[in-house]
Design a protein around this nucleic acid. Structure first.
Lengths: 240, 240
DNA sequence: CGCGGGTTTGATCCCAGTCAAGTCCCGTGG
DNA sequence: CCACGGGACTTGACTGGGATCAAACCCGCG
């Protein structure tokens, strides 16, 4: 019994793809469990994988490599996330999945996906829903990379990460969440240099501290103010 | 009979979500046709739309608005694209869809989506597939915004646009494709200022020209060289 | 003819990338 | 036990790509 089946999973803030009920249903389709040590690779970009996964424990990153050797972290992998579904469907993984901390994942066979679509339309619908949520998030990331400066990007990322992790019950009493990544990972995710990311984190220190693999948010309001999350309505449109 | 039903639709370069056969099947589920004039809005971000669409003719953009008034163009809308599926599923549109040229779209009811999932698993599978492809593309966009400089971004965008449009048969004899957008749109898509986008386009003029709403590519190879599309394999991994 | 939206070009400034040290910490081996 | 080395983090100095400001220019249109 994994923590993710016992902790109160909710579709919180569009961040929790699977409910506990859904997860347990999916368990019938599981084809094994995968355990990764930090730095181990789940799949490489370009791989035509026969599997996709849901993350149960630990954290990782999905990265794309460019010809010049640069890395872009496309997304972080947290407990509850579905990983590699895109790769299974769209003919080859578009990114490499790497564990940042020890991970446990549940493995499913792409082959049986079609079976799932036939036998359980509701679950199939849920899978499409998950893809849609992912798409929503990637859109937000694009807006962040395209329009916000370094301070806003980092504030946005820290808030997103904190909310996502506390939504799956990983927040401790003291209000801190585990975040076993390197600053290099955050830098590559936000399209900033390592050095500048570091300096930005230093400036935000009064509002949020990230040390020893744990993240504290002391002033979420101020962070949100800085991050300037997108407005739901276009400026010229009357507010209701 | 719309051009998109007659022209040879293929799943080309991951860019053509619907085959002609699939499209005609979906036609049974259509609930009407939408025509938009340039500048008209299909849906606003935040809207809880009861519909989603496939684009048949014309082009448009999907934009996110930020609190400071900035715009981010998340994606372009071309004939064959599915629009608003994400909005239908993930509870509210994450972006605003606006027509750049006169558009014709086919409208579907979100309500009947579930029906589709029950009656035709294959089509349901195709829908998830479409979402996965979209996710793939957004990931590439993230890598572009995060890691590439202005010249690379513009070269990448022009190539993508050209390939996408010629894949749906919109290329003329002379090799030009229609691109009725403003430079402002490309700038907002690539996270660059309008001024700098313009200067970059000027520098790329020998390789690609974009005038009067039409785009010519004269040296695709050189453009690809500049764009440095992502490598399928991570650098440290043996090639096979 | 004048107006407004889109495009072009030049001049200036600043955010963030790059280079280069230096610190802290932990694991390894003499 | 301490010396050494390597990896992550920190900090300062310098530079440059792209943002910003400003002013034309080029249409189509009322």
């Amino acid at each position: 019994m994994h923590p993710c089946q016992t902790c109160p999973l909710r579709r919180h803030d569009l961040f929790m793809p699977f409910s506990a009920e859904e997860l347990s249903f999916m368990m019938k389709f599981r084809s094994g469990e995968v355990r990764l040590a930090p730095g181990e690779v789940l799949f490489h970009e370009g791989d035509e994988s026969a599997y996709f996964y849901t993350a149960l424990e630990g954290q990782g990153v999905r990265v794309k490599h460019l010809l010049n050797g640069e890395r872009q972290v496309v997304n972080l992998i947290f407990p509850g996330d579905v990983v590699g579904l895109q790769a299974s469907l769209a003919g080859g993984a578009s990114s490499t999945a790497i564990a940042s901390s020890p991970m446990v994942l549940c493995r499913f066979e792409k082959r049986r996906l079609h079976e799932l679509y036939c036998s359980s339309p509701d679950r199939a619908y849920a899978l499409t829903w998950i893809a849609a949520v992912e798409e929503h998030f990637l859109g937000e990331t694009i807006a962040t990379l395209g329009q916000r400066d370094a301070t806003q990007r980092v504030a946005w990322a820290l808030l997103k990460i904190y909310n996502r992790l506390s939504a799956v019950g990983l927040a401790q009493e003291a209000g801190d969440v585990p975040l076993p990544l390197r600053q290099r990972d955050l830098a590559d995710a936000m399209g900033l240099s390592l050095v500048h990311t570091n300096k930005t984190l230093a400036r935000l220190r009064p509002l949020a501290r990230w040390e020893n693999g744990r993240l504290w948010i002391s002033d979420a309001e101020a962070l949100a103010e800085i991050a300037m999350t997108d407005c739901a309505l276009p400026p010229d449109r009357p507010l209701l």
